[in-house]
Simulated scan of single mutants.
Amino acid sequence: MPLNNHVILITGAGGGLGGTAALALAKQGAQIILLDKLIPKLEAVYDRIVAANAPEPIMYPFDLAGANENDYLELAERVGDKYGSLQGLLHSAVEFSHFTPVSQTSTKDWGQAISVNLNAPFLLCRVLLPLLQKSTHASIVFTSDSSARAAPAYSGAYGVSKIALEGFAKILAEELEATSTIRVNTLIPGPVDSPLRKRAYPAEDKTRLPAMESLASAYLYLLGPQSIGITGQTVDARTFHL
């Protein structure tokens, strides 16, 4: 159980990729903090982890877009009080509704996407860094998109936020490389049969896509001991091999 004594917080843990990561990591002994705004989805992932005889996770209902700075600070304080330190932080939450021309994007939709996809990862990193720094080794993993660097038309605030998120990950990795043992990397899941993919491409034949569970080895690598010393990298799951 390579992740025994690892406490890992996962945002969007009630979603497809977040839930997949939570189960894969928990099966390797990790204590998972499930963070999501939808309690029924949190409960479903919780039940899957318990049914797998993995360490019982913690559910933490949290609205990344609606929370203020004090809410983030309270989250960090509660995690610190219960665990003392943190060994992993996986940013898996995502806000995407549909492809839209910039000219038709509402201010509300733009703000919501930027809040969840970019501002929330920044705030979480800032408040949780002290707990991550208490670990001998810790890992921060961001989730990007295979099309981010291409900046395709109609990707709107989602596309902008992913481009910015990759830049933020690089900056944070460089800042921490010389002063701590926290590694910072970005995962590109690629096209998989996920709820987000179904929403973005409803007419696509999903039987041709890999299952979400195919990402388990990438999550275990990035958040486990095998990636110690690897930082500032972008891992594409489509070409990833241990």
Rank of each mutant, 00 (worst) to 15 (best):
A120M: 02
K162C: 00
Q112G: 04
Y154E: 02
I182F: 09
S146W: 12
T107W: 10
K134D: 03
E177D: 11
F99W: 00
E177H: 15
G156P: 00
R183I: 02
P130N: 09
S180Q: 05
H98C: 09
T179P: 09
A150Q: 14
K198L: 08
T181G: 06
L176H: 11
I182Q: 06
A153G: 05
A138I: 13
R149A: 14
G111R: 10
L129G: 13
V116R: 05
P101C: 06
E177V: 11
R126Q: 13
A151E: 08
H137E: 10
S155G: 06
K198V: 11
G190L: 06
T179N: 14
S161G: 09
Q104L: 10
G156M: 04
V184T: 10
S139F: 01
F142C: 13
V184P: 04
A150H: 14
Q133A: 15
V141G: 01
A164M: 06
R199D: 12
L124R: 04
P202L: 01
Y201F: 15
A113Q: 13
I182A: 10
A178E: 14
L132Y: 00
V127L: 06
A138N: 04
Y158A: 02
T143P: 01
I114T: 10
A173T: 07
K134F: 09
R199A: 15
L165T: 00
R183Y: 05
R149T: 13
A153I: 07
F168H: 02
T181E: 12
G159Q: 01
S146I: 09
A178N: 11
P195D: 15
E166T: 01
P195F: 08
S97P: 07
C125K: 02
L187V: 04
R197N: 13
A150E: 14
L196R: 13
A153Q: 02
V184A: 02
P195Q: 05
L128I: 10
T181F: 01
I163R: 11
C125I: 09
P130T: 08
Q112E: 12
T100R: 13
A178T: 14
P202G: 02
F96H: 04
P101Y: 01
Q112W: 03
P152K: 10
A200G: 12
Y201S: 10
I182H: 07
C125R: 05
K134N: 12
A178C: 06
P191R: 06
E174N: 14
